[in-house]
Structures are given as structure tokens and as C-alpha cells.
């Protein structure tokens, strides 16, 4: 679904001594089907931003459009539930939302709420579990007997089983082991393409943003700081440094390489293989290829 923010402000605890402006004059557009990374220092408003995507927060000022749903301060859609069935959100530490006796029931919870027929739910559960790499033998186990990483997978499966058009991920891999992080991210990436999803990923990892996203939005103190393709954004080393963000390692490498060999190899989000070829070209010329 297309997502548009128009001059969005969001203030927590308005009219109290603790009033806090978390988003300020935020505007951007996300095309349907894109994979967007939202990056920013801690406290920059990333989680606040994504809570607007399924109507959990309503902008204090400005407009949010998600598909056909318009959210403004004076009117929210009457069919909020429908919006939520189309926008699936995996929150930071989603394992905290588990509550059912068995894993099967917990994954079924979302689809049941959204009125998916019983016959289809079973199938969705199995598909979601295999997507997140959980074995079927766990179906009848209590989610509270699992390891933290497994609990995370159950929670993610619970969102996938809703079959949303738009998937919103708030640091979905924080606190997992490196292998688990890669597995989960690769899974989201695969689903994104297979099911033609619109994916919004909040992350601290520049590497992930670079690897998976085709559009990057950098937030700083509730305002949009930079926006563009990964190639456009991640070469702005100084600008990123200003807001306590690093450029991805590949970019750091290319910069150092260029400096050392006085070359101008560009960063164009090339694969490691392509980069290796470019380096070879610089070092020993074309003819030996």
C-alpha cells in the first residue's frame, strides 16, 4: 500500500508538564511494494512514526495516508480493524505479547480476530511457522517454555499469519544471535518479494538497511534528516556522522581504498563480486582479466 506522511507532528502527553514533541513536520512518500528502512539514533522517533501506520497513533497535526485510509487529528477511519488486518506490525521485542497456552493458539489469535475462516487458519499457522523456522512439533507447546529466540519467532509468525499487505518491522532482530538475525531478515526479504509486500523496517543496522532496503529515511530528533536510495544516502559520511550514525562498512572500505590508491571507484550498492572486479581493475588493469 502507498504510504504518505504530510507535515505530521506528534506530541506525547500534550498539555502536561511532560509534553514531548516526538515527530515534527514529517513528510515523505513510500511507494507500494518498496522496502523502506527507517534509521535514526535512539529516541529519534522511529517507533512513534510506525505506530501511525496502523492507526495506533493519530497525528497531532498533519495527515497520514495508508492506502485508502486517511488519518488526521479530527477524523480517523471507522474501520480501523480492517486497516490493522492489512498492516501487520512486528514490535520491538514482540515476544512480550505472547499469552496463549499453546503456540498454535497464539499464532491463531490474530487471524481469528480478523475473522479468517477456521479451515484456513490451520494452513496459515503451518506456513507461518515454517517461514520463521519453527518445527511443527512445537504446535502444542506453551510459548513460555521456549528460548527467547524461539519466542521471537512465534511472535513474528503470529503477525505473518494475519497475511498483511504491508509489513512493519521495529528492530525485529534486536537481541538475537547473528545467525538468527540473518535468517529472520532473509525470511522477511524473501516474503517481501514472494508476496509483493510493502515493507517498512526500523533498524539500527546500516548493513541491514543497505542490504535489504531500496529506500532509506534517516530521522533525527523527530525530523526527517535525509532520504533517498541507499546509494544516495550512505555516501554522505559527514552528514551521517552528525547524527551519530556510521556509514556501512562497504562504503567505509571504498572510501579508504579510493584515498589510498587515489582512485574514484564509486559506491553504487554493488555486490562483493562486482566490487572485487572493480578493485582488480584498478590494481592490475583491464588487460589481465
Amino acid at each position: 500500500m502507498d504510504i504518505t506522511f504530510e507535515n505530521v507532528d506528534y506530541t506525547y502527553q500534550k498539555n502536561t508538564p511532560f509534553e514531548h514533541k516526538a515527530l515534527e513536520d514529517l513528510s515523505f512518500h513510500i511507494k507500494s511494494g518498496s522496502f523502506v528502512a527507517i534509521v535514526g539514533h535512539t529516541g529519534s522517533g522511529k517507533s512513534t512514526l510506525i505506530s501511525h501506520l496502523n492507526g495506533l497513533s493519530i497525528p497531532t497535526d498533519g495527515k497520514v495516508k495508508v492506502g485508502d485510509y486517511l488519518l488526521t487529528n479530527d477524523r480517523k477511519p471507522s474501520d480501523m480493524k480492517e486497516l490493522r488486518s492489512k498492516v501487520g506490525v512486528v514490535f520491538q521485542y514482540p515476544e512480550h505479547q505472547l499469552f496463549e497456552e499453546t503456540i498454535e493458539k497464539d499464532i491463531a489469535f490474530g487471524p481469528e480476530n480478523f475473522g479468517v475462516p477456521e479451515s484456513e487458519i490451520k494452513d496459515r499457522i503451518l506456513k507461518a511457522m515454517s517461514a520463521v523456522g519453527l518445527s511443527e512439533s512445537l504446535l502444542d507447546r506453551s510459548p513460555f517454555d521456549l528460548s527467547g529466540g524461539q519466542m521471537r519467532r512465534v511472535a513474528i509468525a503470529g503477525v505473518l499469519a494475519i497475511k498483511p499487505d504491508t509489513l512493519v518491522l521495529d528492530e525485529p532482530t534486536a537481541g538475537l544471535d547473528p545467525r538468527g538475525q540473518k535468517e529472520i531478515m532473509d525470511m522477511f526479504y524473501r516474503l517481501h518479494h514472494e508476496q509483493n509486500l510493502t515493507t517498512v523496517l526500523v533498524t539500527h543496522s546500516m548493513e541491514d538497511a543497505l542490504k535489504y532496503a531500496n529506500h532509506v529515511i534517516i530521522l533525527n530528533k523527530g525530523k526527517k534528516y535525509l532520504e533517498g536510495t541507499p546509494e544516495e544516502v550512505f555516501v554522505q559520511k559527514d552528514a551521517l556522522k552528525q547524527v551519530q550514525l556510521d556509514v556501512p562498512e562497504v562504503v567505509q572500505f571504498i572510501t579508504s581504498f579510493n584515498k589510498k590508491f587515489k582512485t574514484t571507484t564509486p559506491f553504487s550498492n554493488q555486490s562483493i563480486n562486482q566490487l572485487a572486479k572493480q578493485i582488480k581493475q584498478v590494481l592490475i588493469g583491464d588487460e589481465l582479466e
Partner: peptide
């Protein structure tokens, strides 16, 4: 805070 967080998570899973 926790209540707020969990109720948001469950609302996203269709609880009204």
C-alpha cells in the same frame, strides 16, 4: 508503560 505497549501490540493483532 508495559500495559500501553502490550495493548498496542494486541490491538495490532485485531483486539478491540
Amino acid at each position: 508503560q508495559e500495559t500501553d505497549k502490550i495493548s498496542r501490540a494486541q490491538a495490532s493483532r485485531g483486539v478491540d
